[in-house]
Simulated scan of single mutants.
Amino acid sequence: MMGTLPSGILVSALLKRVNDSGGMGMVRARGDAQSGAILLLLNENNGTSKVMERALDLLGKVILVETGPADPTDAIAREAYWRRRRDRDPDLWVVELDIPSAERFAAETIASG
């Protein structure tokens, strides 16, 4: 993704922001430090989670797009989904966040980078 910070720096910044705010973030799979895609597992307090990915919109702006299993409570399907994606793309970063408003943290850091 041209014009954006390297993936490794974006992931590090996101983890630092989340951890500094009292949440927990961890890298489930380390991807290419320069240009690896970033897949986010965003856990909510109610037991649900979203899977989102950094992408480009039609104008070339970085956005977060919801992807993955339709059922936000199916942890087994979520785990299988990211593992399949990782098998097909070894440069993929997989980052899990456990903090209230995880999507906001991700958007402010990943989509602005």
Rank of each mutant, 00 (worst) to 15 (best):
L64H: 00
R30Y: 09
V95C: 01
D32A: 05
R104N: 15
D74S: 03
R104W: 15
I63M: 06
A106H: 07
W93E: 03
V27L: 01
G36A: 07
L41T: 11
A106L: 12
P72L: 03
V65H: 01
G3F: 04
L15C: 05
N19T: 12
T4Q: 12
R78K: 04
A13I: 11
I110D: 07
P100I: 08
D89N: 05
V18H: 04
R28K: 11
A102R: 11
V27S: 01
T48P: 06
P69Q: 02
E79P: 02
G68I: 07
R85V: 01
A80I: 04
D57G: 03
D57F: 04
P100S: 09
L14F: 04
A29F: 04
E53V: 14
V62N: 11
I63F: 02
A29L: 03
S12A: 13
D89I: 01
I99K: 10
E66T: 13
A55C: 09
L56P: 08
V11P: 03
P72S: 02
N45F: 15
N43S: 10
I9E: 14
A13Q: 15
N46C: 03
R78L: 03
V62L: 11
S101K: 15
S101N: 15
D87Q: 12
R78I: 05
L58Q: 14
D74V: 02
P100R: 14
G60I: 05
I110M: 10
